[in-house]
Amino acid sequence: METRELICTGCPLGCPLTVTLEPGGPVVKGHTCPRGEAYGRSEVLDPRRTVTSTAAVIGGRQARVPVKTAGAVPKDRIRDCMEAVRRLRVAAPVGLGDVLLPDCAGSGVALVATKTVERT
């Protein structure tokens, strides 16, 4: 049976996890809390990450606005999301939480601003 050694990234404790791929689904050991178990399962079944970057702002008090995907996107879509952010130009004002792309690079997850940038 295949086992994988992971480090839970659910919180800074970083518990060492052992995930065994049983016929009935992955079995997680080593977690301290339920988040760790969920992380271990999803990390072998459907690994996801939140993408953060900055996008260009036009006419704002700052040249860039920080952004993030509103939820985690499949790991293999990270590059596409970054490319979508690179092409993005946002007009000021931008508010914290504003949806900048409803579906970031076809990931099914929105891209939102994580800071308010006023107009100049």
Binding site: I7, C8, T9, C11, P12, G14, R49
Partner: peptide, 12 residues
């Protein structure tokens, strides 16, 4: 550094 950063920033 924090372990989570080693996983998410380097290992990934």
């Amino acid at each position: 550094g924090l372990k989570r950063n080693i996983v998410q920033c380097l290992d990934d």
